[in-house]
Design a protein around this nucleic acid. Sequence first.
DNA 1: TCAAAAGTGTTTTTTTTACACCCATGG
DNA 2: CCATGGGTGTAAAAAAAACACTTTTGA
Lengths: 243, 243
Amino acid sequence: MSPSKELVDFLNSGHLYMPGISIDCVIFGFHNRQLKVLVLQFKSTDGYALPGGFIRKEEHIDDAARRILEERTGLKEIYLEQFHVFGDSERGRDDTHRKFSRANGIELEADHWLLQRFLSIGYYALVDFSRAMPTPDVFSDTCQWYDLAGLPDLILDHNRIVQQALETLRLMLDNKLVGFNLLPETFTMNELQALYETILDKPLLRANFQRKMLSLEILERLEKKWTGKAHKAPYLYRFQDRH
Amino acid sequence: MSPSKELVDFLNSGHLYMPGISIDCVIFGFHNRQLKVLVLQFKSTDGYALPGGFIRKEEHIDDAARRILEERTGLKEIYLEQFHVFGDSERGRDDTHRKFSRANGIELEADHWLLQRFLSIGYYALVDFSRAMPTPDVFSDTCQWYDLAGLPDLILDHNRIVQQALETLRLMLDNKLVGFNLLPETFTMNELQALYETILDKPLLRANFQRKMLSLEILERLEKKWTGKAHKAPYLYRFQDRH
DNA sequence: TCAAAAGTGTTTTTTTTACACCCATGG
DNA sequence: CCATGGGTGTAAAAAAAACACTTTTGA
């Protein structure tokens, strides 16, 4: 097959980026009481990968991460946080990129910038599932949400990166009140609780959860939400200042 | 003045390292109820800097950090942890290295590897003050402990790096029981409390502190320590498994 | 025998956990 | 009028904070 112009352009764009450093993003979403992660599927091969990218020569690393996130989700103003640098000495020096390029009709030279060792700065992002518009990149056919529990095998150390992002998220959940970023603008207490239960992977007592959240005084109670169900209508809440 | 051979060699050794990435270490020690940080003073200029270095092409980043730490302190098996990547777009592109080299008799070419933009991976390390042997590097005349409160102005964003290291240390103190690494093998409960009080910058109640530490069941009580003071002799303790 | 600091004990307060109760709602 | 889930109340348990008491020691 003959390679796409976009891909060729990208493979020739190494001089735009800081060499040897990449960014990988673990983009979390929440839907149907499940934590989801955005995963790309490579063209022409069966490889799966986290959304990632490179840092432009004159770009702040956080801006690079935001750019990557916006390209994959269509969202600006995403909550994101650096959590770890992955720096195994052989990281990125396996066959992944070579095989991918070959499958797409390009043979990379031995000293191609993509075949060098790469450090990767891991970021995790929390997005409102309902507003994200998953969009593939030059490498990939699809960009899709996967249940955290049902992730495919990812390239390189990406499964470990997800694992570590999750651990950081759990640690930060109470610490930085970060969970709201995974929900729409307004939500019921039940939805918030479901989110916490999913992230922490343990059931919480409804009454106590409600009291605790309200005692933080960061939630604004709005009108009731009509559910059509045979019970009291729950209140809607809004988080007062996101981030 | 004519430049030292060591410095010339170092300035020509860029090809050994990953380009554009450095490591900076905030090395904490504890002495006289004060938190200390190890700081280098540059040769021939009045610049102060954190101990740092670069990552060899085939070296795990954590190994690079350990190597740097060993070179500055003489200690192996140091407790250390990555805490943040500093990635301002102009980081490292100021005059620091140029001025330093000039003062030492070398004019760097415009495209010299040290004059590029650098990301820096921040590590913090906790060492036993009494065992560390501060040792300057090629850049510096002295390598000395400074009180955290009395730090000089450091180059680049190094003051901010220290600040963020301290915040991380405070956060981790209870979380990972990390404080013991700042003390000698054996210590009294009073010394441990002084350490906690210093790091957290607040007084703690003696009775409660003791109870809490003992309840963690990670301290081994040894013989009493003879102090020569006019009061009960305190027990010595040892932390069961460091790290 | 006194002051100083160590070790332990006790009380009070706060926080967390568990469970109970009542309410609105649609079928 | 009943089952369902939402909101609030209360009791019990646990943890944290505050304070008190006793012991050892050198001067």
